[in-house]
Simulated assay, not measured.
Amino acid sequence: MDRSGRIFAILLVLGVVLQSAVATTYVVGDSFGWAVPNNSSTYSDWVSGKTFMVGDILTFNFVTDEHDVLEVTKESYEGCKSTNNISSLITTGPANVNLSSTGEHYYICTVGRHCQNSQKLSLNVSASSTSSPSPSSGPTSQTTPPPPSSSGSFVFANVFVSVLSIVLCILV
């Protein structure tokens, strides 16, 4: 195999490895965002077909003082109660929540009757292929601005271009 063939093979392998290590950012509700939905299945429909992994990030897009986000137990989720919370109340939007543990996660909006009107989210988080399962201590919440949409792809592209540049500098 000539030199350019070896470079291509190395970059292909690096690309596959790096792609598997990149977390995915999900914008809750996609373009609808985190708001009171028109029907009770909006957020369960949004979750359907998605695989959430430890290390992924949920971005809750909402207007500060109109909505909030609170992770709660299953019982509090089902009863729309802000008791038995797992994380601190997030009141500033948009907000990112890092999924740092496996298992079921439950989120509600505590403003008015928003939760009773189906502004609540339930999802299951699986262990990532690049990390071992974490204890069920709940996710770490942040109120930083959301990353660009498709940030997993964006991060992967940046890492790939950086690695490509380094490899080319070494080999050329």
Results as ranks from 00 to 15, higher is better:
71 E>W: 03
13 V>S: 13
39 N>R: 08
41 S>R: 10
10 I>R: 14
89 L>S: 09
64 T>D: 12
45 D>P: 05
41 S>P: 08
89 L>W: 11
28 V>A: 02
73 T>V: 01
66 E>I: 11
63 V>F: 11
56 D>I: 02
48 S>G: 07
59 T>R: 03
42 T>L: 10
74 K>G: 04
65 D>I: 15
48 S>A: 14
68 D>S: 14
6 R>V: 12
91 T>G: 13
36 V>M: 06
10 I>L: 15
38 N>A: 11
61 N>Y: 08
91 T>W: 10
24 T>Q: 10
71 E>L: 01
69 V>A: 06
55 G>T: 02
10 I>G: 07
53 M>W: 06
13 V>E: 05
13 V>F: 14
37 P>C: 03
63 V>E: 11
74 K>C: 04
28 V>T: 02
18 L>Y: 08
75 E>W: 06
45 D>V: 01
17 V>Y: 13
43 Y>R: 01
30 D>C: 03
67 H>T: 06
82 S>A: 15
14 L>F: 15
73 T>C: 00
27 V>I: 13
9 A>F: 09
77 Y>P: 00
10 I>F: 15
57 I>A: 10
34 W>E: 08
39 N>H: 11
12 L>G: 12
6 R>G: 14
64 T>P: 10
7 I>V: 14
28 V>I: 03
44 S>T: 04
27 V>H: 15
25 T>L: 08
27 V>T: 15
57 I>R: 14
63 V>A: 11
42 T>W: 07
36 V>F: 05
49 G>A: 00
37 P>V: 04
45 D>K: 00
88 S>I: 09
68 D>M: 04
57 I>L: 12
42 T>Y: 08
55 G>K: 00
11 L>W: 10
58 L>H: 00
74 K>F: 06
26 Y>K: 03
9 A>N: 07
